[in-house]
């Protein structure tokens, strides 16, 4: 889970989840705490889904 996807690709990660921003990849200080935790939850669920998906090559999970 990283914000600069081209770096994740260049170092060889196979399942990549784009995140929010470098200093807060899994959060957003502009949101209220409930909204922010929801956002984090969505991102982590995306990662769990990626881990349950077979891939044959480096894959960026945008959806």
């Amino acid at each position: 889970m990283a914000t600069i996807v081209p770096i994740s690709v260049s170092v060889g990660a196979n399942r990549i989840i784009p995140t929010v921003s470098i200093p807060y990849p899994l959060g957003n200080p502009k949101l209220n705490p409930v909204e922010e935790k929801n956002l984090r939850r969505q991102l982590v669920e995306k990662a769990l889904k990626a881990l349950q998906t077979d891939v044959t090559e480096q894959t960026v999970f945008t959806e």
Partner: peptide, 16 residues
């Protein structure tokens, strides 16, 4: 470091 120190879950999502 401001945002990570304010809430470290923003980098390591332990709460969720």
């Amino acid at each position: 470091q401001t945002y990570a120190n304010e809430d470290p879950d923003r980098v390591l999502p332990v709460d969720v």
